[in-house]
Design a protein around this nucleic acid. Structure first.
Lengths: 205, 205
DNA sequence: CGGCATCTTGAGTTGGGTCAATGGTCGTGG
DNA sequence: CCACGACCATTGACCCAACTCAAGATGCCG
């Protein structure tokens, strides 16, 4: 589920970066419907993207951590199709779309990387469709934790000791379950090493 | 959920097309894991893409009809991440990836179109995540039919009289429900005008 | 006409939703 | 420093939508 970027790519991307922006926890970066002029890369912190259904239901479509790129949904119609919110104090790099459109032909390789990143997002989404469409609660949560573990590991953090920056409700929204269900599974599944507390949410796997 | 292509774009895409390929109903175009060298556009017929879970469970991730492009998932790692199968006798255009990578700078607009198409696939996937994560059976089926209706309409067919080329089981796989549930909902929901038969599966909405 | 695949329908079970109560954590202000 | 309130997480009791299992029914094709 991650949208990884290789260090090399990150460096190249840096050249495209226009500005950075700091976001306090809970602040919205962009809203559904607003004009889309940029893509974003998480520099520090944690970002969620969510879709709002008319009747108030929401579905979280992604959690993004340092090094991961998001905002691809806005390219189609030049308007964001979801809302993105910081889960904790965060910093994002802003990459103006015009720079991508008028990209220097020399940077063709970068162009190609962008295709790959978008493709990876699509693969991730298909994985989520599989998860939502044919896995049980326990499996969903397990897959989610394993995925997080992997992403932390890649970034040099312990894959065994996860700090969940999102609330139970948000996990539920992402995995298509209610808070209570998430909570019950957390209680049931974990082996002896499990630790949990609110706000700073630790978890061993 | 459609990956629409404007007529203008289709024309430009034609220049990139290497060959076409006919597929008998039930034939697999590519398998998960096989090397990915192309994208595809449905010329006639109906194509499904599905993900295979280790334990035999499958999740259909998309249905594609005339004019819609698919195969974006293969770009990330140069290997297909799903399997695509013809639901009926079909014809697809094959667009070699190398042509896209070495695209003529004059066709920058085409480049841009490709980004849009991929972005649209991402938006579609997020819609599916919303559907799978927070809608009831009835709502899912309704959304599915409305979407199909819309896509047929765009292509000049009646939006009221749909010909479903996929089986109940496939609809179920796509929408995250079992065959029986799909069948029951079909029985329950439809107004008077509903017609159904096997193989040629008609449906009024 | 018979065989096979698909679809429908029924009966019973269950995973997860709903509602409601409890308890923990944190931030704020007296 | 402690009391209060807001927010979050957990837990229990109950319920229902969707799953499972098991027949039939229907349509397709050789």
């Amino acid at each position: 589920m991650p949208i990884g970027t290789s260090p090399a790519l990150l460096k190249e991307l840096d050249e495209l970066v226009y500005v950075r922006r700091r976001l306090k926890s809970g602040i919205t970066l962009y809203h559904t419907g607003s004009h889309c002029h940029s893509l974003y890369v998480v520099k520090t912190g944690f970002i969620k993207t969510e879709n709002l259904h008319d009747d108030g239901r929401t579905q979280i479509t992604g959690f993004y951590m340092a090094g991961e790129m998001f905002g691809f949904d806005g390219i189609a119609d030049e308007a964001h199709m979801c809302t993105s919110v910081a889960l904790e104090d965060s910093e994002v790099c802003i990459i103006p779309l015009e720079r991508i459109e008028n990209i220097n032909p020399d940077l063709l390789r970068l162009q190609h990387h962008l295709y790959k990143l978008m493709s990876r997002e699509i693969v991730r989404d298909h994985t989520m469709m599989m998860l939502l469409g044919s896995m049980h609660g326990e499996e969903r949560l397990a897959a989610f934790m394993l995925n997080l573990s992997h992403r932390f590991h890649v970034r040099g953090y312990s894959p065994y000791h996860l700090v969940l920056r999102m609330k139970r409700e948000e996990i539920g929204s992402y995995l298509g379950m209610k808070v209570e269900t998430v909570s019950r599974i957390f209680t049931k599944i974990p082996g002896p090493g499990a630790v949990r507390c609110t706000s700073k949410r630790y978890y061993d796997s």
